[in-house]
């Protein structure tokens, strides 16, 4: 199935998505990688305010290349999500709704996805030029000292993604290879 998904996504819409579905995502999302996640959690430890609202948020694990003059953003493909596994369950429990990255997640993250009706979407790893072309605007939110790892607010349009882990915990990194190998054994 292919769906159009607007941010912030409704819980009902997220519940419809199944691992392997294609999604075209539009609206406001935030960027954060390892260093930003560490700082977000440090703020939570201190009971301080976060630089953006977590409730219903969509976080894209990306560190883009610098934009040339006249450009909105450079190349902007996903980074490996498992480096955020240590932080994600806490953010999901506090209202983050969607994670965008690449690669499989830990059982703890899958548990938090199911517990919170969240979804993990995969962007195409290594397709930085195509992903960057979906970004309509980019604004620095905080932590400029982190360089490419700073938090940015992006407006994206029809960003092509695949549902990697759905709200039931079904996982394309398990079901995809299994389906292919089954097809070799006389399936289909």
């Amino acid at each position: 199935m292919e769906y159009k998904l607007e941010c912030p996504p409704s819980r009902e819409k997220l519940k419809m998505l199944r691992a392997g579905d294609r999604v075209l995502l539009s609206g406001r999302i935030y960027t954060a990688r390892d260093a930003a996640h560490k700082r977000l959690c440090a703020l939570l430890d201190d009971g301080a305010a976060l630089p953006f609202p977590l409730e219903d948020s969509v976080i894209y694990y990306v560190g883009p290349t610098p934009e040339k003059p006249g450009q909105v953003i450079g190349s902007a493909g996903p980074t490996t999500s498992c480096r955020m596994d240590a932080y994600s369950p806490r953010l999901l429990d506090l209202g983050q709704r969607v994670m965008i990255g690449k690669g499989n997640r830990s059982p703890d993250v899958v548990g938090a996805i199911v517990r919170n009706g969240a979804v993990y979407l995969a962007a195409m790893g290594g397709a930085g030029a195509l992903m960057g072309a979906c970004v309509r605007s980019a604004r620095l939110v905080c932590w400029e000292d982190l360089g490419c790892e700073a938090v940015r607010e992006l407006e994206v349009e029809d960003m092509p993604l695949i549902v990697a882990i759905d709200s039931l915990g079904k996982n394309i990194y398990e079901s995809g290879p299994a389906a292919y190998l089954e097809s070799l054994n006389g399936g289909i």
């Binding site: 990306v62 290349t65 450079g74 030029a129």
Partner: peptide
């Protein structure tokens, strides 16, 4: 589905060359 994925990655390579962009952000 795998063939589709590979085609998208090939499109990305061509887009990068055409627009003088890095193929990957890393």
């Amino acid at each position: 589905p795998a063939s589709d994925t590979l085609r998208i990655l090939c499109c990305n390579r061509q887009a990068a060359e055409r627009n003088c962009l890095p193929v990957c952000q890393d």
